[in-house]
Design a protein around this nucleic acid. Structure first.
Length: 476
DNA sequence: ATAAATGATTTATT
DNA sequence: AATAAATCATTTAT
């Protein structure tokens, strides 16, 4: 996968940079050799006395040099070493050497000063920060994944979420591991190489003038070279992490349908608030908790639901009826009581209901009336911004868990609704508006059927208020 | 294998 | 900021 590619790239880049280092090494070695040849009087003078000014002669020279190189033997090296030692011990050597050093110091000053302190590379810092943020470069979180898993398990609902991401975390760990391994490798190589070069220079400083500054500079060059490698490594790692993220963390790719239960809950809320299917933030949180999903998922769901419902109401009729019937069970109980209690509610004019951009939401079919009935609950006059939404939902919950079994129960409910409707029409016997009102008054029904404070709500105006009583659910 | 359903994202609107 | 609408990428059903 991309990850291994990344690693391969890293390795390649490392290799290529290693070549660079080899080149540095060679150049340094070349200096060394040159020094030897000067000092030790490298043997093998040019075979032909005349220096080849023409190409032919040059080729010839090169051929000769090659030949000489090929014929260098251990013995000749030993000889060279011996000669070197001899020169080193020459009585004039210290004086000459100091002169050389002096000269070099003078000329070397002009060389330096090109770049003083290394400015913190913004690009590198960016990469560093990013890796840190992704948890790649940060402190080794050995128990991190385990802790995260435990936390997720403890939170219950997020467990599958964590499972979903376990793969991602595993890969991330893998990346981090390789990243650290490589980084360490580079660091070690850098140190080794630096040591080596410094030793070399120190060694040579006995035979040719090398100022400490020069060594410093060389070390700086080496470090820069290696840090550029590290940057490549970091960049590749970042890339890999990004790819990983887009691959695993993009929920759209790893979409999972909500549980049946969650969908039920959401649908119940939707259809029981069909006239205004816009749950408040609080309601969203409640629903999220109930469904073991996030608030933003609730928002997404309602957004999708609204648009899709509106787009094709017919397609959702069946569903609407089903859920309306479900909610209507509560309605039936409460309404029955309500009918007795609140005979003459002053008919507040029914809200024209929901602001869904396009009119619609006018249900016309016979079945849709059920939906409408059940909808009445929340359809108060403009004052429904109050956090009353949770109640209905709660009652639905318990009811569902207990009795809902499928079509059969649905049929029962249906009949109950019919009965209810009948009662309403007989008792109040008016138009929809009144029916709504009647239906509406039981809105304060709570799951337990205890709605003793309901009558007060019959004082119309702000029927939505009854909610607070039961609002302390948060069971689970 | 194909279509439908579905959750998430993106874009535009208010 | 929240939402509508269009769209994407996946899952589920056929």
């Amino acid at each position: 996968m991309s990850f291994s590619i990344c690693v391969a790239q890293c390795t390649d880049s490392l290799a290529s940079t290693m070549d660079d280092q080899a080149r540095i090494m060679q150049s340094i070695g070349g200096v060394s050799l040159a020094g030897h040849s000067v000092q030790g009087g490298m043997p093998l003078p040019p075979p032909h006395g005349h220096d080849g000014t023409d190409g032919d002669g040059r080729k010839q020279d090169i051929g000769d040099i090659l030949h000489q190189i090929m014929t260098i033997t251990d013995q000749s090296l030993d000889e060279a070493q011996a000669k070197k030692h001899g020169l080193n011990c020459h009585r004039m050597k210290p004086a000459l050497f100091s002169v050389l050093c002096e000269i070099k110091e003078k000329t070397g000053l002009s060389i330096r000063g090109a770049q003083e302190e290394d400015p913190p590379d913004p690009q590198l810092m960016r990469l560093d920060n990013m890796l840190l943020a992704e948890g790649v470069a940060g402190p080794e979180k050995g128990g991190g994944s385990a802790a995260a898993a435990a936390a997720a398990a403890a939170s219950g609902g997020a467990a599958d979420n964590s499972i979903e991401h376990s793969d991602y975390r595993a890969k991330l760990t893998q990346i981090r591991q390789i990243y650290h391994t490589e980084l360490e490798k580079y660091e070690q190589a850098c140190n080794e190489f630096t040591t080596h070069v410094m030793n070399l220079l120190r060694e040579q400083s006995r035979t040719r003038p090398i100022s400490p500054k020069e060594i410093e500079r060389m070390v700086g060059i080496i470090h820069r070279k290696f840090s550029s490698i590290q940057m490549q490594l970091k960049q590749s790692t970042c890339e890999a992490v990004m790819i990983l993220r887009s691959r695993f963390l993009d929920a759209r790719r790893k979409r999972r349908n909500f549980s049946k239960q969650a969908t039920e809950i959401l649908n119940e809320y939707f259809y029981s608030h069909l006239s205004n299917p816009y749950p408040s933030e609080e309601a969203k949180e409640e629903l999220a908790k109930k469904c073991s999903i996030t608030v933003s998922q609730v928002s997404n769901w309602f957004g999708n639901k609204r648009i899709r419902y509106k787009k094709n109401i017919g397609k959702f009729q069946e569903e609407a009826n089903l859920y309306a019937a479900k909610t209507a069970v509560n309605a039936a109980h409460a309404a029955a009581a309500a009918v007795q209690n609140s005979q003459a509610n002053s008919p507040t004019t029914p809200n024209s209901g929901f602001q869904m951009k396009d009119e619609e939401f006018q249900l016309d079919s016979a079945e849709s009336k059920n939906t409408l009935l059940s909808n009445m609950f929340t359809g108060s006059s403009g004052s429904f911004s109050l956090p009353n939404t949770g109640d209905m939902f709660l009652s639905m919950q318990s009811l569902n868990g207990d009795s809902y079994q499928g079509a059969q129960v649905g049929a029962n409910v249906q009949s109950q609704v019919d009965t209810l409707r009948h009662v309403i029409s007989q008792t109040a016997g008016y138009n929809d508006a009144l029916a709504r009102n009647t239906m509406y008054s039981p809105h304060c029904l709570n799951a337990n059927g205890g709605w003793q404070d309901a009558p007060t709500s019959s004082s119309v105006i702000s029927p939505t208020e009854g909610a607070e009583s039961v609002h302390s659910d948060t069971s689970n």
